[in-house]
Design a protein around this nucleic acid. Structure first.
Lengths: 229, 229
DNA sequence: ATTATAGTTAGATTAATATCGAAGTATGAA
DNA sequence: TTCATACTTCGATATTAATCTAACTATAAT
């Protein structure tokens, strides 16, 4: 890593495929061990160790020692925001991941993308919110409408709290599997949490698949109905 | 550039010092020729050409042919946003540019940083807004107060329009020269535009220096007084 | 103690790519 | 036509850094 302007280091850290894979894995918020990250990036543990050292030195990740394990996390919310921004731009520019799309059908159905819902369920939720006039899509910007505010508040979500956050409230995110937009941003995160809190789906360890129960699936479809147009 | 997840390409593009220098130069919004960018990055024109090709293929820049010149720009506002986000994170993590800070004294005084005001004038404006209770600084987040809203509206700035934008309204940005914070975000941009519109300073071509007139300087100090505490 | 698991460090190899020199293309000026 | 400027393409070189094997440290389990 040669000298260069301030953004060079961060760019080169993310610019390596192995490290990018690790960061992508960490973006779900779940703490992962070095071995898990090695597996995620398909490299040996030694190489992983070297990468983790660089990522930590660059301030992108943090580690917690616990017994003989080391758990790694993104350093803070800002790093997650940066990665989200990059993913969004990459999707818009058509840099779709060539190598590994979501393979398993459960992944295509519903999965965690960073910290919001993606997959068919994510797309359906987004379409439903747009279709009922709760969200407004203009070019690439998403805005919430007045009726949308009422709807979200009706779910018991504290909208004012979300708006104070640095992250944009509404943001679209292109879906790998469906090649359609779904909802990111702090509202997207809040809605995923809502799904967990209602018990519609379980938060699985280690995996990004979101597993809906039968009842949860029905409740989801009821809350975010598919509209025939 | 090996295969990898979607963010890898963008990361590696920004991760090269020469390219990062070029992108930093372009972030002011001014279109630059290949030769100018070569000069900015301190590399030969041949190497520059190769870099520009990659940046364009990656969707980060656009080019316009005009006679025997080629003018380069960032591809769109999203790219600028990404770079701003990265600069912000880099500053927070302490990855300050080691090599070249702003040299010329005019640069230290007032310059364009992305699309807001930086340098001593930028820092003073920021301090003044904080000191008069128009902005609130909590940890790394900046928020506008009710009296701040009144003040900004009083300048004739449409605050509601700014808040609808994707970009955060208020954001702090660490100053290279002053090592102090100044105001970025859409409000920062709006205030810089306000300075131009009032005729306090001229928008110079090719250079990032913001040149205040005598009268403009006085008006600026009047509008954003330095507070003795 | 002994063995197993989790991770780091060191050293060698290899692959990627930034860089430049030299030659070529395109536009404009004299 | 000739010359100059702006930029691209080609080919060679050199440097960087990602990767692996092997050896080492630390914690935990038996």
């Amino acid at each position: 890593m040669k000298e260069g302007p301030d953004i060079t280091l961060i760019g080169s850290l993310i610019g390596d495929p192995a490290r990018a894979n690790m960061l992508s894995a960490l973006i779900s918020g779940k703490a992962l061990t070095a071995s898990e990250l090695a597996n995620e990036a398909n490299i040996t543990l030694q190489t992983t160790s070297a990468h983790l050292k660089k990522l930590e030195a660059g301030g992108l990740i943090r580690q917690r020692k616990q017994g003989r394990h080391r758990y790694f996390n993104l350093a803070d919310e800002d790093v997650a925001t940066l990665l989200e921004t990059m993913m969004g731009l990459a999707a818009k520019k058509g840099h779709i991941r060539t190598r590994t799309g979501p393979k398993a059908p459960e992944m295509r159905k519903a999965r965690v993308c960073y910290n919001h819902l993606a997959g068919e369920f994510g797309v359906q939720m987004f379409d439903s919110l747009i279709g009922r006039g709760f969200l407004l899509e203009e070019r690439d910007e998403i805005a919430i409408t007045d009726s949308g505010r009422d709807f979200i508040r009706g779910l018991g979500i504290n909208l004012e709290l979300l708006q104070k956050a640095k992250r944009p409230l509404c943001k679209s995110c292109l879906d790998w599997s469906a090649r359609r937009s779904h909802l990111a941003g702090s509202l997207g995160t809040a809605l995923l949490n809502h799904i967990y809190e209602k018990g519609w789906a379980k938060r699985l360890e280690d995996v990004r698949v979101v597993e809906f129960s039968r009842r949860g699936e029905a409740a989801f479809h009821n809350q975010f109905p598919r509209l025939t147009d």
